[in-house]
């Protein structure tokens, strides 16, 4: 039986509270913001690693982004993955989810013989949740979204996952290869393995591919391959907490609270 080939898509995002919206241009200003691994991708990492613990196999980290992603990708590598593929080219810039998924898929094709592609539910900056389904569409393979748990049958070559739904859960099964998106916060990502910390910093652990390496169609990548148009951007109003404390017996407090709710939100 061939070794299980797992790809985890990882995005490096700015820390959300450090992004500023330029009041003039309405563009996101992230130059001074610290970076982190997209938190939902950490849950995908943990799911991939527990898969590797159970079945063995090889985990490739796949990311599209500028070279400054590298240190954080090496952090993810030190959690127990095997290799990093960074798709980096100025031509990839300005990609929406259509161009991003196309580019990632070119990377997945070049890695070759992939059984499972794992993604976080969504990114904390873009938050579309479109990348996992997009990958499955380009590759024309099944997808299981928002899973909290997954098992693989290597003989039957199937993936079986659990998804929480309103009032219960459902068990879903698809043939391999497939794309899986992982429900945010469904597991606790393990910390880096310090025996791997310096190994993960070695030069050979990372492969960078540009548009040429990927044989990417120029019309499908970056801004050119992105039909999405951002027509406007608005900041959500900041809600000031009133810090009102109700006094009295529990009964009185409930009465007063009910009164406030009736008045304020017209229940």
């Amino acid at each position: 039986m061939a070794e299980l080939q797992i790809v985890v898509c990882v995005k490096v995002v700015p820390k959300p509270e450090e992004i500023r919206v330029d009041p003039e241009t309405h563009l996101l200003e992230r130059t001074n913001a610290r970076s982190e691994i997209n938190p939902p991708d950490m849950n995908a990492m943990e799911m991939a690693l527990s898969m590797k613990d159970r079945y063995g196999g090889r985990i490739s980290l796949l990311s599209m982004g500028p070279p400054f992603f590298e240190p954080n990708l090496r952090v993810a590598l030190a959690m127990g993955a095997d290799h990093i593929y960074l798709l980096s080219d100025p031509a990839f810039a300005g990609a929406d989810t259509l161009a991003t998924t196309y580019t990632l898929v070119q990377g997945i094709r070049k890695i070759g013989d992939v059984d499972v592609i794992l993604c976080g539910e969504e990114s904390s900056d873009g938050a579309t949740g479109q990348v996992p389904p997009g990958l499955a569409e380009w590759l024309n393979i099944p997808q299981l979204t928002l899973l909290t748990d997954v098992s693989i049958d290597q003989t039957l070559r199937t993936a079986r996952g659990r998804r929480e739904i309103k009032g219960g859960y459902e068990i879903l099964e698809v043939p391999l290869p497939c794309v899986i998106s992982v429900k945010t916060a469904c597991n606790e990502p393990r910390f880096m393995d310090y025996r791997l910390r310096s190994w993960a910093l070695e030069k050979d652990r990372l492969t960078v591919w540009d548009a040429g390496d990927l044989d990417a169609e120029p019309g499908h990548i970056g801004l050119t391959g992105s039909p999405t148009i951002v027509t406007g951007l608005a900041e959500a109003p900041y809600r000031e907490r009133r810090r009102e404390f109700l006094q009295g017996s529990p009964g009185e407090v409930v009465q007063e609270l009910a009164g406030i709710l009736r008045k304020e939100v017209e229940v």
Partner: peptide
């Protein structure tokens, strides 16, 4: 920690 057996919650503390 080296045996990957820390108490639940502590990896999140490290992160």
């Amino acid at each position: 920690w080296e045996n990957r057996n820390p108490e639940k919650g502590l990896p999140s503390l490290m992160w």
